[in-house]
């Protein structure tokens, strides 16, 4: 049986990749994808914790996170689209009408 620590390590690596993606990429869509990666990294650790503790709380939370992530996609893509209509770009370096 694979120990819980292994799953947690994968999850931590995925989460870090997501954080790095948000910090270094400049395209709003890629940044958004990196955020989704962070959420899914959390899901991995929740499922493995749930198995370790032997109850379902963690797994239920995963379902709720998926629902929230879907809502975030709906709102986020609409916002990115509305910025694109004004600026013809989704590069966050060019979205700078105000001092960032």
């Amino acid at each position: 049986m694979v120990p819980t620590v292994a799953y947690l390590a994968v999850s931590a690596v995925l989460f870090t990749l997501g954080v790095v993606g948000v910090l270094v990429r400049r395209n709003a869509l890629i940044i958004f994808m990196s955020i989704e990666l962070m959420l899914n990294a959390v899901n991995v650790s929740l499922v493995s914790f749930a198995r370790q503790h032997g109850h379902a709380t963690g797994q239920v939370f995963v379902l709720l996170i998926l629902a929230v992530a879907a809502a975030e996609v709906a709102v986020g893509l609409a916002i990115i689209l509305s910025v694109f209509r004004h600026r013809d770009t989704v590069d966050v370096d060019h979205v700078n009408l105000m001092k960032w």
Binding site: V42, V92, N96
Partner: peptide
């Protein structure tokens, strides 16, 4: 629109930390 984008991206980023 720009305010909304900045708020959304940084907010979603922060909620990633919160769930973790």
């Amino acid at each position: 629109a720009e305010a909304s984008l900045k708020y959304f991206l940084l907010g979603a980023f922060a909620s990633g930390f919160l769930v973790y």
